[in-house]
């Protein structure tokens, strides 16, 4: 990693932390809050790319585990990872990497729909695939109930995907950062 890459990694870790300044809404039954921070995951992948985006979220998760209050609502510490939302948080680095990888693969042929599809795959499908079984294990509810409880995230996720597509397209025109893979 060059110095510029390190600065980018720090930038997107900080951006994800700053998105936590929006107050979270905690979901009943599954006990996981809806936050703007999953937008940080999508933005990191879509703007910084696979390696830097993945590293940014890995750094963010590391700092949260170290006890810094970077999660929405000023929470932090290992309790977050041990709690019901831990599966989502721990998948974020992988999700950012996957989003970045698919963006870099398709950087010349990106349409708004294609971007939305990539973001849904990495930011929604992948994180839910880990997050829902994690809730089921930690809270000892069965998978179906955990999945139904998590469905409350979907409207928020749809809004986030649309916002990130709009933001990433505009930023890319103003300041291209991705390289084709």
């Amino acid at each position: 990693m060059s110095t510029r890459d390190i600065v980018f990694v720090a930038l997107f870790a900080a951006l994800t932390a700053a998105l936590g300044l929006f107050p979270p809404v905690t979901l009943p039954v599954v006990g996981v809050p809806i936050t703007a921070q999953s937008m940080g995951v999508m933005l990191a992948g879509a703007i910084a790319g696979a390696t830097r985006g993945g590293a940014a979220l890995a750094l963010f998760v590391l700092l949260v585990c170290a006890g810094l209050p970077l999660m929405a609502g000023g929470r932090g510490g290992l309790g977050i990872v041990m709690g019901p939302g831990g599966g989502f948080v721990l998948t974020w680095p992988v999700a950012a990497f996957v989003i970045g990888f698919l963006y870099e693969r398709n950087v010349r042929t990106l349409t708004a729909w294609k971007e939305a599809l990539i973001l849904v795959l990495g930011g929604v499908v992948l994180t839910y695939a880990v997050g829902i079984p994690w809730i089921a294990a930690v809270a000892r509810v069965d998978l179906v109930k955990a999945a139904i409880g998590s469905a409350w995230f979907l409207p928020g996720d749809a809004v986030k995907v649309v916002l990130v597509v709009l933001i990433a397209r505009t930023v890319r025109r103003a300041y291209p950062t991705l390289q084709a893979r």
């Binding site: 990693m1 390190i6 600065v7 990694v9 720090a10 930038l11 870790a13 900080a14 951006l15 932390a17 700053a18 300044l21 590293a55 750094l59 963010f60 590391l62 700092l63 810094l68 970077l70």
Partner: peptide, 24 residues
């Protein structure tokens, strides 16, 4: 993973958070 680079990234992240808030 180079621990010195991770250290630099951690220091920069902590510095960037208030800067981001100010820019916003």
């Amino acid at each position: 993973a180079n621990p010195a680079k991770v250290g630099l990234a951690i220091a920069l992240t902590l510095r960037f958070i208030p800067v981001l808030a100010a820019i916003a």
